[in-house]
Amino acid sequence: MKEGFLIEQERLEHEAAASLKSSGLINDIIRYFRKKSIFVLAYGTGCGAIEMPPTFTSRYDAERFGIRGAATPRQADVIVVSGYLSFKTLRRIIHTYEQMASPKYVIALGSCTINGGMYWDSYNTIKQLDKYIPVDMYANGCMPRPEALLEAFIALQKKIENDEEPSGWERYLENIEWYRQNQRAVLGEDIKPAYEADWYTEGR
């Protein structure tokens, strides 16, 4: 049986996602607006979260680029994984990422998400984030300054506008088995979400 979030995305979001791919004036306009309204999920997963408030408030003012916070994953476009991830948080990140509606993007901060960083020999943090969820943009540094964060967001906007290579969420859906296998290797068999498809299962 297919997992709940896969069915949900096929049923509800397939058309919206397909529109991203096709060309034409209307779709260009859609892409433009999509690029200019990026809602970032309010989830400070690690150290890097301390540079998020300066980025979003008056001094660096990310809102001038159309970037602002969103409270729930259902309304967010971008999740910022701000640094190291412990196993316990990774479980929640996967859960949260799968709740977000596609098109959705992941920005990973700091050296910790690339190769473990400072915590390369820690027994409780993962080393390469893109084995577990797809990453669209890395911002380097420990920790990245607000300018670096803004640069990452703007690079992401360019990526949304050009839409050349497959985005992270497309790769995630295509290679779900590979991602699941990696997730199971560190989290054990019972990765949340453990829920099965319910009201939107086939035949209802």
Binding site: G116, W120, D121, Y123, K127, Q128, V186
Partner: peptide
């Protein structure tokens, strides 16, 4: 433990 469970880039 790390070498057993993770590989580095």
């Amino acid at each position: 433990f790390v070498n057993e469970h993770f590989e580095f880039r």
